[in-house]
Design a protein around this nucleic acid. Structure first.
Lengths: 376, 376
DNA sequence: TTGTACGCGTTATCAT
DNA sequence: ATGATAACGCGTACAA
């Protein structure tokens, strides 16, 4: 048993060749005779030699380390967990290692993680932009590193972003509910500094406006950051004299909070519910939970594809692109509950929402609410 | 904007000192005057210098990289997700980076990940041993790297392991059910090559034997590797003329399969159910799901604590230890369903299980079933 | 307190 | 096709 790990020198000595020849074999470079190649290969095998990627990186002209940094809000959230799983698998196939971290929506933690990544010379970054303030210091920190953003718009113009069709998702949810007669629909969404949350709330509001309903403040609840707040928001909706007939949730965390409250009040069969992000128990609960599901497999494939493409290109030869990945509505029951207590009115004012004359003020609303920075 | 990242040389030139002095400041070494220190610090700030940990590692006598590799079966499983989250947070505080990978219980994938980790000179490893065959090649690969095993027994004698009280968990589940009158209890467990699965099935069987019941083959279903198989196993239990009055599940995946089947058959109020691993919807389902919950926070703390301790010690100065972390039973309803159809018999033979005269054959059973390698 | 010389394991350059 | 030599950015040993 050797104490020290074998180096190229050890291999070279055993094979009776120079270090450079070993390097050629290890890196599959041309101009090595077959005999020498097999000789070196057997020496590598005998010594259990493994290339030191640290030293390799230090010397290489491009400084590559074959490692990628992944920064998500919380890897224990199943959505990010599934995404991480898919990304690691794809990268592992291409011989990349993955450094991971959860920023918990905290700018300081995020900066610490980015420093940890850059100090280790990652070749690329995958970032979920989920802190409100992005210091220029942070942008500078990763300025020269190929980065793909996901779930949010890119922080720098040159980067790609891979994002679910958030607006389409909530629009689809509204249409789904509207078709079966709901007009008084509430939305509970995440913190609006995140573009994904903005897009989802925008999609909800737009779809409602197009049906001539302006959601009142009590039907359009935003900046809900955790399960407890979501539960409280749901409570205030449900304990009212005129509760909404349906609730749409902006993500899986808010869905859990709302779900707890709905079930605790025994309202699971009278209030329609559509969640965002799928859940492994969604079909066990009674009624099953109808959701807008993100496609983590497609997201991961697109993210990795884009990132690796960037790594092979000369820097900044490419404009930043935003790729949209479709979402899908999965019906399981909770979203198919009809508004039983109230027939669908055609002219009467609706609970707290105001009914509009068709196509009035919608354009103003659009201008006022269009998510900032959306590139179309 | 500089193209190249600043190096110690750049800082040294700007500050008008030698590279070594910069190195001293960067590494907080003594013997630097305050004036020089601040001078260097401001140069570092101006240039945005960051130490290249790759180069540092290559040169250091101990080769440290300040990075740790984490290998789990599947990071998208909430249990591993929570554990990973806690571990990353703790390591991040200590300036360590974390490399992660999911082996999917596949030996080849595992070897690829371990190679990726060792090639990057990780200082330590955290491994969930979850492949059936461990080639000596793999053991040799990580022979000199401080390693903490979790969820399973160490593969090498010198390593620590941090493991939940698996046997106690299933024992507790059996006692809980027994107290309220269940005698015909089925167990559905994971693949037995994993020591955690072995310990859980052992705990179940031991507890049953101590109550004088030998679980028949149709009450002791093992090697269930995925949700679908678990569901099928549950189906075969439930469709029988004399189904068990209670089911204990060996982990969260089997629990999901069983739960789906129980609910699909509308048996959720007649068959008691206790799961292993907590779940974020466990209290939403009706009835709520009683579980044996692992303590991911305590596990992570113990794991990181042990690993860092090892990194500071001279190698092999320490015997390998196995630390047990308590689990807790959380009552939510499904585990408190009483066996309504059948009164608790005192002498009559029980469905497929054989009732034993007190304390007969139990010792043989113990010997036959004791998990291999358990150090007591 | 500060600096010089060297080496870590690898890749790049230019020879043979 | 193969090798000698330098260099990457940093830490170590020792001199000043």
């Amino acid at each position: 048993m050797n104490r020290r790990k074998a180096t190229m020198r050890d291999v070279a000595m055993l094979a009776g060749v120079s270090v450079k020849t070993v390097s050629r074999v290890v890196n599959d470079e041309p101009n090595v005779s077959e005999t020498v190649r097999t000789q070196v290969a057997s020496a590598i095998d005998r010594l259990g030699f493994e290339k030191n990627l640290m030293a390799s990186s230090v010397r290489r002209s491009d400084g590559r380390t074959q490692s990628i940094g992944l920064l998500v809000p919380d890897i224990s959230n199943p959505h990010w967990g599934r995404l991480t799983r898919e990304i690691t698998d794809l990268l592992q196939q291409r011989r990349y290692a993955l450094l991971t971290g959860s920023n918990d929506r905290d700018a300081e933690i995020e900066e610490g993680l980015l420093r940890a990544f850059t100090a280790r010379q990652v070749d690329g970054l995958i970032i979920v932009p989920s802190v409100s303030e992005t210091a220029s210091r942070q942008r500078q920190l990763i300025a020269d590193i190929p980065t793909v953003y996901t779930d949010g718009l890119p922080r720098t113009g040159g980067s790609d972003a891979v994002i679910s069709d958030n607006e389409g998702g909530t629009r689809q949810a509204v249409e789904h509910l509207w078709k079966i007669g709901h007009v008084d629909i509430a939305y509970i969404g995440d913190e609006q500094f995140m573009s994904s949350a903005q897009e989802r709330s925008y999609g909800f509001r737009e779809a409602m406006l197009e049906h001539g309903v302006i959601p009142g403040r009590d039907r359009f609840i935003l900046d809900i950051a955790n399960q407890q707040s979501a539960r409280e928001a749901a409570a205030s909706l449900l304990k009212s004299d005129a509760p909404p007939t349906a609730i749409i949730c902006g993500n899986n965390t808010t869905m859990l909070g709302v779900l707890h409250e709905v079930h605790a009040r025994g309202k699971q069969d009278s209030v329609a519910l559509i969640g965002f992000d799928d859940h492994d128990m969604a079909s066990v609960v009674r009624p099953g939970i109808t959701v807008i599901a993100q496609d983590e497999v497609a997201l991961a494939q697109t993210i990795v594809d884009r990132l690796l493409r960037r790594l092979d290109e000369p820097a900044s030869s490419h404009q930043g692109e935003t790729v949209r990945v479709p979402v899908s509505l999965i019906s399981r029951g909770s979203g198919e509950i009809t508004p039983r207590s109230q027939a669908r009115p055609r002219d009467a004012p609706i609970s707290s929402g105001r009914r509009l004359p068709p196509r009035v003020a919608t354009l103003d609303e659009e201008a006022a609410l269009k998510p900032s920075g959306a590139n179309d």
